[in-house]
Design a protein around this nucleic acid. Structure first.
Lengths: 259, 259
DNA sequence: CGATTCACACCTAGGTGACAATCT
DNA sequence: AGATTGTCACCTAGGTGTGAATCG
């Protein structure tokens, strides 16, 4: 399973003003900032730092060859076959599996910011039917939580640095607290989400805001979609978490193959 | 006790080529890179990004007003009165107290790299006389270990970011392994050292190497000098470490005032 | 014999799901 | 009844000095 072009998530298109400034502080940022095509759109021919027209649909050459490979793909797929659930808590809970990617195709000498956001997969609210071990639609979605983004804490950094090793979003935490002021990602429990990953070229041009829509490339891995929950519903998900997450080793009975 | 101007440490003057590039990897860097006056030298009049002559002795305006206040000063002084000892191990050992400073006077919008190095305080080797509880000179110094530097892992970052909160060098580790390939600071046991702290302005000019000697400012806090040891010699140092380092709580008997 | 090394018990710091209590 | 919250035992990960063993 690979990368799916992502086209819009129903969120407003906003420019992120942190990308050319200092190290972004996650909770200063709110709202996802793009909905356009990521993967799959053509590079603007000959587009460099020189001329380009506003409104051009191509991507800046610094991002158009960027590629991201999802790490731990088989583990993600095993969860996905059961219907991945991610715990959300007031204090914030990490994701497991952790979202990790291996990057390539960046300009080693250019600066990039890496970030993630989470798109509602539909406008429904769910509940779990224990007797049939399946999810049922339980109504329309709650009002969408503030659309926050999570900047990778090493941002900004050079392309060479990002490509040197696996990029891990293990500091990212999910919360259901609408008033959270720790900069965590706010999600509605019992709603489905698609994690999204963005590579943003830090454009050194003065009027770089005008080209912001060309300076990023986005990746969505369908096998990483999940249901946000406050407690696990599917017992097989619980067992797979216990079996594969080192921090849950205390709940293992025997010693089957660790991941 | 305050800041002492530092003039040379007997090490060669080298230019650090990482300062304008990507995130520096500590163990890629070797050799301290300056010996000139830090604190106390005048700013070059009107010196900005514009004209200045090579060999000008003043400091770039981005660093000349930089100030660093040592944190936990009274703890450092308490150790210093007894004769601070720092453990060095093959695997690398953190310093305690941790070297921490509060910065001011930086340009909030400019990029800076922060780093530390360690200067031999003399060319002697010591040994501890337990009967008199004092240090004796035991000969001439061993050949100086490779003069590494430790970049603060958040480097480079904007002045505003550095000044926002206390800058802590808690990732810095000391080793006595001359073949260390973990990027740790290599010191000779039974030798005395003076930690040094450097603020380096990341000069965006093309030929910034020519001005490297103007783009940094250095700080030496005499109360942070120490003897490198493989095992504590002065029992009162051991007791003060146990009393003040949270990780050594297991060795406390009663519960006197924690630091 | 002084200096160094290593395994170890004991901490800090923080990530797990279980489970009882509580909320709506 | 379903969803959420808070506490807890049990982990991972790694920073302490100790004290015996070893090195030179």
């Amino acid at each position: 399973m690979g990368i799916k072009p992502h086209c819009g998530g129903g969120q407003d298109t906003l420019i992120c003003h942190h990308l050319h400034g200092g190290r972004p502080t996650p909770f200063q940022s709110s709202a996802a900032f793009l909905g356009g095509p990521g993967e799959g759109s053509p590079c603007t021919p000959g587009l460099g730092w020189a001329g380009e027209g506003p409104g051009a649909s191509g991507k800046n050459r610094h991002v158009c060859h960027a590629m991201a490979r999802l790490e731990m793909g088989s583990l993600w797929e095993e969860f996905n076959r059961l219907g991945t659930e991610m715990i959300v808590t007031k204090a914030g809970r990490r994701m497991f599996p952790t979202f990790q990617v291996k990057l390539s195709g960046l300009d080693p000498l250019a600066d990039y910011v890496l970030l993630m956001d989470f798109i509602p997969l539909d406008d429904k609210r769910y509940r779990y039917a224990f007797h049939s071990s399946s999810w049922l639609v339980a109504g329309r979605a709650e009002p969408a939580a503030p659309g926050r983004v999570h900047f990778h804490p090493d941002s900004p950094a050079k392309g060479a640095q990002w490509m040197r090793q696996i990029v891990s979003f293990d500091k990212l935490k999910l919360t259901n607290n609408l008033l959270d002021d720790n900069g965590h990602i706010i999600l509605n429990s019992m709603h489905r989400y698609q994690p999204r990953f963005h590579v943003v070229f830090v454009d050194p041009r003065h009027d770089s805001e005008r080209f912001a829509h060309q300076n990023f490339k986005s990746f969505s891995f369908p096998e990483t979609q999940f249901m946000a929950v406050t407690a696990y519903q599917n017992h097989r998900i619980t067992q797979l978490k216990i079996a594969s997450n080192p921090f849950a080793k205390g709940f293992r009975d025997s010693d089957p193959e660790p991941w």
